[in-house]
């Protein structure tokens, strides 16, 4: 069983829900999907610097509430993102590893 992933409580964040809704609406209609990777749906503030996560990054971020492992997060996302599970899992792993290394995500037990 993998470790559960949680957001670093020092990171202040919010969802840009209107932007997220617009992107999802466009994707549902099969419109240009470049916005999903280029536009931010979650805003993070870390030590005074502001970052944004794109749609997939933002969804992973929201699911990182300490209750799910990487596999669990990928499972939850499979209903939103229509890609093979293995591919999604690899993407989630890559993202989570990146943010763990930055300290923005932490293992719940650590």
């Amino acid at each position: 069983m993998g470790k559960k992933i949680a957001r670093n409580p020092d990171v202040v964040w919010r969802e840009e829900s209107e932007i997220r809704d617009k992107i999802l609406e466009a994707l549902e209609k099969g419109e240009d999907d470049s916005q999903a990777s280029e536009q931010g749906t979650v805003t993070l503030i870390i030590s005074g610097t502001i970052y944004q996560l794109n749609l997939l990054g933002g969804e992973i971020w929201k699911l990182s509430d300490g209750s799910l492992t990487v596999e669990g997060i990928a499972d939850s996302l499979s209903s939103i993102f229509d890609v093979e599970k293995e591919v999604l899992l690899e993407d989630v792993k890559e993202f989570v590893d990146d943010l763990l290394a930055k300290g923005w995500l932490v293992y719940k037990d650590s």
């Binding site: 999907d33 280029e38 890559e94």
Partner: peptide
């Protein structure tokens, strides 16, 4: 749907 991951958008143009 798009599955491409960019962990951090380093720069999003201000006009957006």
């Amino acid at each position: 749907m798009n599955r491409e991951i960019s962990a951090v958008s380093h720069y999003i143009k201000p006009e957006k």
